[in-house]
C-alpha cells in the first residue's frame, strides 16, 4: 500500500489537464531538453560502469595485492554515503577550488562524474559473486584445448558474467536517471544545459505546477518499470542453463 497507492495518485494527477495537457507537459522544450540530457548522461554512465565495474570486479576477485580488503570495503561507500555529500565532494575536487585544477562545476561533465561516483557499486557487486563462483577449471580446460587468453575471456568468462554485468548496468542506469541529491548542488541546474529530469520535476513541483511535474514523473516511472522488466528478463536468461 505504501508503494502502490502514491504511484496510483501520481498517474491519476498527471491526467488532470487531459491527454493534451499531459502531452504538452512532456513535450515542453525545457522538459525535452532535461529528459534528453538525463537519458544521454545515464546511458554514458551505464556504459562506463559496464567496463569499469567489470574491471574492478575482476581485479578484486582474481588479483591479489596489499590493501585489497580495504579497497573491497570502500566499493560499498557510495551506497552508505548520503548522495548530497557525494555531490559536495565531487564539487570540492573538480569545482572552483579544485586542488588538481580541474574545473567541471556546473557543467555536464560534473553530472557525469558524480553519477559515476554514486553508481560505482552496482556492476562491481553483481559481477563479483559470479566471478568468484566461476569454476576456474573451465578456463583451464579451454587453455588446455589451445584457446588464447583473450578468446578464453570472450568465449568462456564473458558469457557467464554477462547477465551480472547487464543487470548491474540496468540498475546503475535507473539510478542515474533518478538521482537528484548528488546533482542538485554541483550541476548549477541551468535549463537546457545542465538541468536533469529529476531536478526539472522538483522545480516544477516547487513552483506549484504539480500536474506538469506529475506528467514528467510518469515518464521517469515508465523508464523505471522498463529497467525492472529488463532486470527480470536478464535474471531469467541467467538461470536458463540451470532449469530443466
Amino acid at each position: 500500500m505504501i508503494v502502490a497507492l502514491p504511484i496510483a495518485a501520481l498517474i491519476w494527477s498527471s491526467r488532470n489537464d487531459g491527454w493534451s495537457g499531459f502531452w504538452n507537459a512532456i513535450s515542453a522544450p525545457e522538459a525535452v531538453a532535461a529528459l534528453k540530457l538525463t537519458l544521454a548522461v545515464a546511458a554514458l554512465v551505464a556504459l562506463t560502469n559496464a567496463f569499469a565495474g567489470t574491471l574492478i570486479a575482476w581485479v578484486l576477485v582474481r588479483d591479489d595485492f596489499r590493501g585489497k580488503t580495504v579497497v573491497n570495503g570502500i566499493i560499498d561507500l557510495p551506497f552508505a554515503l548520503p548522495t548530497i555529500v557525494a555531490g559536495l565532494l565531487v564539487l570540492a575536487l573538480y569545482g572552483p577550488h579544485s586542488p588538481v585544477d580541474v574545473h567541471a562545476a556546473y557543467t555536464r561533465y560534473a553530472i557525469y562524474l558524480v553519477l559515476l561516483f554514486v553508481t560505482l557499486p552496482f556492476v562491481v557487486r553483481t559481477v563479483q559473486p559470479v566471478l568468484y563462483e566461476l569454476d576456474t577449471q573451465m578456463e583451464e580446460a579451454a587453455r588446455s584445448l589451445g584457446a588464447r587468453e583473450l578468446t578464453i575471456f570472450r568465449r568462456i568468462v564473458l558469457p557467464s558474467i554477462l547477465p551480472g554485468i547487464l543487470s548491474g548496468v540496468a540498475m546503475a542506469f535507473a539510478r542515474a536517471i533518478g538521482e537528484i541529491g548528488a546533482i542538485v548542488i554541483l550541476s548549477g541546474n541551468l535549463p537546457y544545459k545542465t538541468e536533469v529530469a529529476s531536478v526539472y520535476v522538483f522545480n516544477l513541483s516547487e513552483s506549484g505546477n504539480g500536474t506538469a511535474a506529475a506528467a514528467v514523473a510518469v515518464v521517469l516511472l515508465a523508464i523505471s518499470f522498463l529497467v525492472l522488466l529488463a532486470v527480470g528478463g536478464i535474471r531469467r536468461m541467467a538461470t536458463r542453463y540451470e532449469r530443466a
Partner: peptide, 16 residues
C-alpha cells in the same frame, strides 16, 4: 520498484 525509481518521483507521488 523503489530501487529503480527516482526519489523525486516518490516525493511527488506522496505530495500529490
Amino acid at each position: 520498484l523503489p530501487l529503480a525509481l527516482s526519489p523525486v518521483v516518490v516525493g511527488l507521488s506522496l505530495y500529490l
